[in-house]
Computed example of a mutant assay.
Amino acid sequence: MRKLENKTAIVTGGSRGIGANLCECLAAAGANVVVNYASNKNAADEVVFRIESAGGKAVAVQADVAQSADVTKLFDVAEETFGKVDILVNNAGVVHYKTIQDTTDEEFARLMQVNVNGAFYGMRKASVRLTDGGRVISISSSAARMFLPTYGPYCATKGAIEQLSRSLAKELGHRGITSNIVAPGPTETELFLGNNDEEKIDRMRKMAALGRLGKPEDMGPVVVFLASEDSGWITGQVIPVNGGTA
């Protein structure tokens, strides 16, 4: 069932991992998709190729979400290519696992610029460019509720995104626009696997009630639901998608 027929979605950080799967799931549900990438054009082009090979419509757009003008460009291209924007998925982000003591000014600034500023710029632009009845879905992390050492600076950015999303829900509700958060648990992505040793990965796996790490494809159906009319009475909420990890 193509719940998102004739809708247009922007997915930031859409070239790899969870973002790539979200792009393909939204397209499979009927949406036209703007696949945002920061630097990996080949990966973004591959996502577009898979979508188009399955009969969908997509375009890859380079943009650094830490730059306000680049976020504006995403909306401009979406409207020029597909006529409108109905759905924004704030997925782009960077990770950082260090104690608060060991985190440098530059590392913390980078986390804030990409994770928080990027989501803020997207929400601000969505406030004036999204169609009535539109959807804003922001990706947080279940780690924000797990009180893990070395996760503090990263989780601080996710907490900020969640509060922005809740405020946006109140601000745009009169237009029928919803704003929700999806909070994955530990997920088999390049970012997670490449930034943790095997011992830590195994420990995270065992924390899940369902006994495994998440997969990018576990997130897609939830995001499609939140992007569809079926979720019209849900807004300002955090939806954990973590297999019972937290």
Rank of each mutant, 00 (worst) to 15 (best):
G122D: 07
G122T: 01
M123D: 11
M123Q: 12
M123V: 03
M123W: 01
M123P: 00
M123H: 01
R124Q: 15
R124N: 09
R124P: 00
K125T: 12
K125I: 12
K125V: 11
K125E: 15
A126K: 00
A126R: 00
A126W: 02
S127E: 14
S127V: 00
S127Q: 13
S127W: 04
S127F: 06
S127R: 11
V128L: 06
R129V: 00
R129T: 05
R129Y: 02
L130A: 05
L130N: 07
L130V: 00
T131H: 02
T131N: 14
G133D: 09
G133T: 08
G133K: 09
G133H: 10
G133Y: 08
G134Q: 12
G134S: 10
G134N: 09
R135S: 15
R135F: 02
R135I: 03
R135Q: 13
V136G: 04
V136A: 09
V136Q: 12
I137A: 11
I137M: 08
I137Q: 06
I137D: 06
S138T: 12
S138A: 13
S140F: 05
S140M: 05
S140I: 04
S141K: 01
S141V: 03
S141H: 04
S142A: 14
S142Q: 14
A143H: 11
A144K: 08
A144P: 00
A144V: 05
A144M: 15
A144F: 06
R145N: 15
R145W: 15
R145K: 14
R145P: 02
R145M: 12
M146K: 14
M146E: 15
M146W: 08
M146G: 05
M146R: 15
F147W: 13
L148Y: 01
P149Y: 07
T150R: 07
T150E: 14
T150S: 08
Y151K: 00
Y151M: 07
Y151S: 05
Y151H: 09
Y151Q: 09
G152I: 10
G152T: 15
G152D: 12
G152Q: 11
P153K: 02
Y154Q: 10
C155I: 10
C155M: 14
C155Q: 11
C155N: 15
C155A: 11
A156K: 01
A156L: 14
A156F: 03
A156N: 03
T157E: 12
T157S: 14
K158I: 07
K158H: 07
G159D: 11
G159I: 05
A160F: 05
A160C: 06
I161G: 06
I161H: 03
E162V: 08
E162M: 05
E162A: 03
